Amino acid sequence: MRRSFQHFFMTTGGLVGTVLLAAVAFLFLSPELGGKPTKDERLAFAQKGHYRDGEFQNLQPTQVMTGGSTVGVLWKFLTQTVPDAEPTGPLPWQPLDSLTITRKTPELVRVTWFGHSASLVEIAGQNLLLDPMLSIGMGPVRWATPKRYNPELAIRPEQLPPLAAVLISHDHYDHLDYQTVQKIKDKVGLFCVPLGIGAHLRAWGVVPKHIREVSWGDSVRLPGLTLISTPSRHFSGRGLGNRNSTLWTSWVVRASRTRLFYTGDGGYGTHFAEIGRQYGPFDLALVECGQYDDDWAEIHMKPEQSVQAALDVRARVMLPVHWGAFTEARHAWNESVRRATAAATAHPNLQLTTPYLGQPVVLGAPLPQKRWWEGPLQKRHE
């Protein structure tokens, strides 16, 4: 029940999830819930073309739940056992020394994945952090939500050097973590976030001048870099009654000679091909690949769809993310990477890389491709 609570609550708004969150989070007024956009902000959102009746909308019709009734979905979570839903022990990981992050040349392009979607991107001499979730547990009800497979991360948030920008895809707890933000907020130049998420950050003490809210198509310029918000197909909300009150996004990171893409969370859709036409090709794409289910088939991709998304955006290298940290769906913990690897073999122009947690992927160098997620797990790699 614990490992399934997050997705059940977020996708169904079910009675059990409502009661638990209301009783625990709201009773104690947890700061994890964040803030709410102001009336003036909501009026401004309505001018963007994808905000109606108090909610942001996807580009194509999207159902959050596609697999039946709330009661039926809850019954599955309570009664069905999934083989190998969690690994037998901690996953292999490689410590990341903060000194190696600060000592670099502008030509270096390096991506380090920490598990789930949190990743460090070093490009054009700048440090970018994607979806800052570097805690062991998540949300205001941590006894009920999934716990990270590994009790230790490749780097602690307080060890990170100054960050030119933090890029957030949406406001779910497994992508925007209150505790991580508290530990890094004073070393971040800009929090680049979809519309509405600024309210969360302001509630958490982030200085407004360090927050840049964007809609799809907006860009943020840093020295040597352009960061562009592009569509995704998902939903948002951190508490009761605020479903879709903030926007969700994918991100393009463009330097003079390198282009990266991060899908954020979301289902497969026509937006990937359009992103590929407008902003591709990409040297590397970090692609959501995990936590899928037939019951929410339009808001998370199956692994084969993840590979197709990488092809649509015209990526040369695909780095699967959104796995390797938490169990939030009814599939084996490593099923997504197994299926994605198999699907990618049919496309020789697409390379798939599967680094250990904390193992850097350096563009222009040999890609990590060891199938460490098969067979016995080894805990640490120096």
Results as ranks from 00 to 15, higher is better:
P355M: 01
A165D: 09
P61R: 10
R257K: 15
L15H: 06
S98C: 03
W204E: 10
G269C: 13
T102D: 13
L43W: 01
Q378D: 13
G139F: 10
S256T: 11
M301G: 02
R233T: 14
K183S: 09
G137P: 00
R254V: 09
A255W: 10
L129K: 08
Q80L: 11
V317L: 06
G290R: 00
Q182G: 12
L286T: 01
L286K: 00
P132E: 04
E107H: 02
S4W: 13
E86M: 12
R371P: 03
V64L: 09
Y292I: 02
D171V: 03
T246Q: 07
P92W: 05
T100D: 10
W75A: 10
G54P: 07
G364W: 11
L130T: 03
V193F: 05
R380T: 04
R148V: 02
E382G: 12
L59P: 05
R3I: 07
Q63A: 12
T249M: 00
T263H: 11
R254I: 04
R42Q: 14
L160S: 12
I184P: 14
A315P: 07
T258S: 14
Q359A: 05
W373L: 07
F272W: 14
L29T: 08
S306V: 03
R212P: 02
G54N: 09
P231V: 10
Q305S: 15
T145K: 05
F114Q: 02
L260E: 02
F326P: 06
L99H: 08
S245V: 02
A255D: 10
M1E: 09
T105P: 08
R254N: 15
W113R: 13
A85P: 00
A346G: 01
E107P: 00
V111W: 04
T112I: 10
L260W: 09
I197N: 04
D218G: 05
R52Q: 15
A297H: 12
R243M: 11
Q308T: 12
Q291I: 05
T12Y: 08
A297L: 13
V317F: 03
L357G: 07
D312Y: 07
M133F: 13
L15V: 14
H175I: 08
E213C: 00
K39E: 15
L363W: 11
E304A: 15
R259I: 03
P61H: 10
K302V: 15
Q308E: 14
P162H: 06
I228G: 04
L91A: 09
R316D: 12
G324W: 00
Y292N: 09
A44I: 01
D174A: 14
G269T: 12
Y149T: 09
V317T: 12
L29Y: 06
